[in-house]
C-alpha cells in the first residue's frame, strides 16, 4: 500500500490521526496532516483505508 496526502486540500480535522495514529500526524502550528509512513505495513492497511474514508477533505490517496 502506498499513501499520498494533499496538504492543500487538508482541513486539519485530524480524523486521519484518530483512525491511524502510526501513519498520520498533525503539524502543531496549524493542524495540517503530516504523513509518518508512506508505505504502511499490512496490519495497518484497514486503519489507513478508514482514515482515507473519513477525511472530510478527501486529502488522502491510497494506491493498493
Amino acid at each position: 500500500m502506498k499513501v499520498t496526502i494533499d496538504q492543500d486540500k487538508c482541513v486539519a480535522s485530524g480524523q486521519c490521526v484518530t483512525a491511524a495514529l502510526d501513519v498520520f500526524d498533525q503539524r502543531d502550528e496549524d493542524g495540517i496532516v503530516v504523513l509518518l509512513d508512506a508505505n504502511p505495513p499490512a496490519h495497518l492497511a484497514d486503519d489507513v483505508r478508514q482514515a482515507a474514508a473519513v477525511c472530510p477533505a478527501l486529502a488522502i490517496i491510497i494506491e493498493e
Binding site: 486539519a12 480535522s13 485530524g14 490521526v17 484518530t18 498533525q26 503539524r27 502543531d28 496549524d30 493542524g31 495540517i32
Partner: peptide, 8 residues
C-alpha cells in the same frame, strides 16, 4: 480556534 491538533 486556530489550534486544530490540540482541539483533536
Amino acid at each position: 480556534w486556530n489550534m486544530p491538533k490540540q482541539t483533536r
